[in-house]
Simulated scan of single mutants.
Amino acid sequence: MTDETHQFCKIFLCSPEPSAIMQALSELLGGVFLRRSMFLADATVDVLRNSDAGTSEDFVGWPTIVEIEATREATNVSIRNIAAEVLTAMWSCDVPAIASCSFEDELPWHGGMDRL
């Protein structure tokens, strides 16, 4: 079971195409999206349009968000690994991605901040 520090992670993507992101994440995580949500054993993964898109030149204004929420069965390691997989997959597809969560310092490139 996760502790309070690994319950949730939001990843901002500089990509205007949520459908392409969902397809990539389905292949990566081995799940299927129902509308905008994929239900895995350890997490629910949502791909959403950012309601604050365009309001800032910073990453918080990027158009797409991936939200990862831990299930009861999740561990800190499993949630960290899912977030790391999403980040590195996006970077390998040349999609800028930045994580905002309490454990971003445990993620590659400190959640992407060191890549900016």
Rank of each mutant, 00 (worst) to 15 (best):
E4L: 12
P63L: 08
F12G: 01
I65F: 11
R49F: 13
A20V: 00
L25R: 00
L87P: 00
I65T: 11
T88V: 11
Q7R: 15
A97Y: 07
D114Q: 10
L116G: 05
T71A: 09
M22F: 04
S92A: 14
S15H: 13
D42R: 07
I21M: 03
H110I: 02
E104F: 10
E67H: 03
P18Q: 01
S102G: 14
V95Q: 04
T88A: 03
E73A: 13
P18D: 02
F59D: 09
T71Y: 05
V95M: 03
M38L: 14
D52P: 00
G61D: 07
H110Q: 08
L25V: 00
F33I: 09
V32R: 15
A74E: 00
G111I: 02
A41E: 15
N50R: 06
L48V: 12
A24L: 10
S37T: 15
T71N: 04
E73T: 12
G30L: 14
E57K: 13
N50W: 10
L107E: 00
A43I: 05
P96W: 09
R49G: 15
L13V: 04
A70N: 04
R80C: 04
L107D: 03
D94S: 11
A24G: 03
C93T: 07
L107K: 06
A24P: 06
S102R: 15
L34F: 14
W91P: 03
T5R: 15
A74H: 01
I79A: 05
D52T: 05
M38G: 03
E4D: 14
F12W: 09
V86L: 06
A70R: 06
E73C: 10
C101F: 01
S37W: 12
A83E: 01
L29W: 05
S100Q: 12
D114K: 04
A84G: 06
M22H: 07
S51T: 14
T75N: 06
M22L: 02
I11W: 07
D58L: 13
Q23N: 06
L87A: 01
A99H: 08
S100W: 12
M1T: 12
S100A: 15
G54Y: 03
A70H: 00
G61K: 06
F33T: 06
K10L: 08
D94T: 08
L28T: 04
I21S: 01
F103D: 01
L48E: 14
A53R: 05
G61V: 05
F59L: 09
W91D: 00
H110K: 11
T64Q: 08
T75G: 05
R72I: 07
T44R: 10
N81T: 02
L29A: 02
N81S: 04
D58I: 04
I79E: 03
S92L: 09
E67S: 13
E73Q: 15
V60R: 11
A53Y: 08
E4R: 13
P16K: 07
F12Y: 14
S19E: 09
S92H: 12
A97K: 05
I11M: 06
T44M: 08
D42Y: 10
A99E: 08
F33V: 09
L116F: 13
I21E: 04
S19P: 01
A74P: 04
V77K: 13
R35M: 11
D105L: 14
Q7A: 10
